[in-house]
Design a protein around this nucleic acid. Structure first.
Lengths: 219, 219
DNA sequence: CATGTTTTTGAGAGCTACTCTCATTTCATG
DNA sequence: CATGAAATGAGAGTAGCTCTCAAAAACATG
């Protein structure tokens, strides 16, 4: 009953710890596990890193690691900003062409991840490498891709006035997400050098206009 | 052991056993493991079925099971007819529009799988269910999807005169394969009732012409 | 501050997928 | 039939993951 109330009862001038100690600790533990994992995986590789090592480095018990992440792959495959993308997409004017919204979305998404707002560039790079090298991680990535696809379905359905479960909607979204996934994989496979935003643009071009036949590298 | 009896070793006019006894046995073992797995999974579910049970039912040792299939998921996720599709696609005239070739390909592929030529309909149905229900299987399916995508890349590259590693080619193919995958998943989720060939058609329509905005079920 | 309640954690047992090694059996061939 | 190669079985070992239960930490009270 008194769930939300009570906060800041005695000292009304507390900085910003809106969350209780419990919540804050959970977040910290989560981060600690991630950090430890990233470090260990960088040092010794994914397979060579065991849950036990991760637990020890993060100063928690193995049980706790599994309480926070259902599988080992989940520790590295995050997908935090799905909801952010969703909101971003929804905020676009409803009469804007979908393709245009998507282009803008891609651009801001890339900018954000490059800004290191949600994860460091090293972490992103590591994730990219793992996606290419470790089958289990790649597989898990595919699963999370499907979640993103569903999110997309909801938004696209609203825009087009169709049902989210509509075959056309689902197929459209999964085609899109699959293609973008491949683009990021292409980027990862090429040493993460090229401009990923440009890759996204070209991807959307292909999806919109098809593959122009026999067009040998027009760039 | 006396099942196959004398294999007509001395008579040089043996019908067609071009393969040695070893090869034939390997094929048989492979099939036996698959059959046993399908049966047990149907009876008790995927997770409840252990490798040990499969081994016992197939009358081999657990070691042998792992020798034939790297993972448990691989036993059910087959993907035998990737090369067949490839040949089929290659056999199409080179100047035929890609979309047309793909439509024909889809049609024959569906016909073939429905004919029970490569696997029984029950097996196909089971695979569909597992793909929807069991995360590990779905994940593995995604991996095999990626292999199909690569095959597609090679063919599409030839057709369009581009390189197989070309970003546009890869993105196009993975978008396509991802969308078709989603279509088959849609089919599986809906009790495997609808006409999967029609779903494929609609999928290709969407990819070619985009999502027609606000078009409420025009069928 | 002492209390009782709830949540989180750690410890440990247990299951199973999967790997590796080595001895044994089964097929192929001169 | 003898010799070499390939397939199998048996067994030990690793690690991811689950479950249970009791201790500890955070919260809500008087």
């Amino acid at each position: 009953m008194t769930t939300m109330a009570a906060t800041a009862h005695s000292s009304p001038d507390s900085p910003e710890p809106r969350l209780g100690l419990r919540e804050r600790k959970k977040i910290k533990t989560r981060m600690a596990i991630r950090k430890a994992t990233y470090r260990l995986v960088q040092e010794q590789g994914y397979d060579a890193t065991t849950i036990e090592q991760i637990a020890e480095a993060a100063e928690v018990s193995p049980s706790t690691v599994f309480r926070y992440f259902p599988t080992k792959e989940d520790i590295v495959v995050t997908d935090e900003y799905d909801p952010i993308l969703e909101e971003e997409l929804r905020s676009r004017p409803a009469d804007e062409p979908l393709s245009r919204s998507l282009r803008l979305l891609m651009r801001t998404a890339v900018e954000r991840s490059l800004s290191g707002e949600y994860e460091t560039r090293e972490e992103m790079a590591l994730r990219g490498r793992l996606m290419v090298e470790v089958p289990a991680v790649r597989a898990r990535m595919g699963e999370s891709m499907s979640v993103t696809g569903q999110m997309m379905c909801r938004v696209v359905a609203e825009r087009t006035g169709r049902a989210p479960g509509d075959l056309e909607v689902r197929v459209y979204c999964m085609g899109l997400v699959g293609a973008l996934m491949e683009a990021s994989r292409y980027w990862a496979e090429h040493g993460q050098q090229g401009d990923i935003a440009e890759y996204a643009e070209r991807t959307l071009d292909v999806l919109e206009h098809g593959l122009s036949p026999r067009n040998p590298e027009a760039s």
